[in-house]
């Protein structure tokens, strides 16, 4: 499978990365080089093999339902949450107006 300019443009749009025509042209052979190379995996016989789910066999721990049990993962820190925002107003994050 190899990608063409239209595919790369679609992928870039899905990934929300603006690319110019020129960049697009340059990317196509680069990405094809990488994709063609990774396609060697297709030759591995994986019959009956499960995809890896946990690199070190382990299962999910669940936490107790307690609000702000750890201040590092709790709420009530609006100033900290907004501290780095490019546009914060009245306690909100501002973004260009969205028309739904």
């Amino acid at each position: 499978m190899s990608v063409d300019t239209a595919t790369v443009a679609r992928i870039a749009s899905l990934a929300r990365i603006k690319v110019s025509e020129g960049e697009l042209e340059a990317m196509v052979p680069e990405l094809n080089g990488i994709l063609n190379w990774v396609e060697q995996l297709g030759e591995v016989n994986v019959e009956g093999v499960e995809p890896m789910t946990a690199v070190i066999p382990n299962t999910l721990r669940l936490r107790a339902d307690v609000v702000n049990a750890d201040p590092l993962t709790g709420g009530g820190i609006r100033d900290a949450v907004l501290a780095n925002a490019p546009a914060a107003e009245h306690g909100f994050f501002g973004v260009p107006k969205v028309i739904e």
């Binding site: 995996l41 994986v46 499960e50």
Partner: peptide
């Protein structure tokens, strides 16, 4: 499936 799932299967084999 062709890429990601296949890669995770090969990852199992590598492990």
């Amino acid at each position: 499936d062709a890429y990601y799932t296949q890669a995770q299967k090969v990852r199992t084999l590598i492990s």
